[in-house]
Amino acid sequence: MKEKAHRYLTLFLTTLEISAFTFGGGYVIIPLMRKTFVGKLKWIEDSEMLDLAAIAQSSPGPIAVNAAILIGYKSGGIPGALLSILGAVLPPLVIISIISAFYQAFRSNKYVSMCMTAMSAGVAAVVIDVVISMVIDVLKMKRLLPLAMLVITFILVQFFSVNIIIMIFAAGAVGYIDYALGRKKAK
């Protein structure tokens, strides 16, 4: 019983720590979790971690939260999953709450405003950089369908303001049909 409680506590504190000190989003968090849960704690096998990472990346929601859920579930069932969600969510919740409390006063300051305006150019560059890398990945697939989906979705959302949730359903349907046809062919 005591051992179990200790395991839960370790799980919570570890996800809390990883979440509090990981800058740069979900793609960074998975190698970190691997280092801790596979390398240090040895709760998870290496090959299993690869599968968990794939599930976390392809499921809906933030990758960091998804990875925490999977590791929590594996390490302590449903209570483990809940604890690790809490650990993953608490740091950003607290940090952004504090920032947000000062935001209005902060933002109206002349110097802060200059800084934020210039940083908006920086953040736009960061996002466009990510987009370029992602488009290159799509091009590397060397298939017409993904490329067509990319172009058509862009045109529909950018110029015709089509609802993006509808687009996600449509793209999911196309993805499924493509998968089903591919399987049929393989047989």
Binding site: S58, S59, V127, V131, A170, A171
Partner: peptide, 16 residues
């Protein structure tokens, strides 16, 4: 997983 992967190009377009 393959359905979600199939979504990817559309998601890239939306992020763009």
């Amino acid at each position: 997983q393959s359905v979600l992967k199939g979504l990817r190009p559309a998601v890239v377009a939306m992020i763009a």
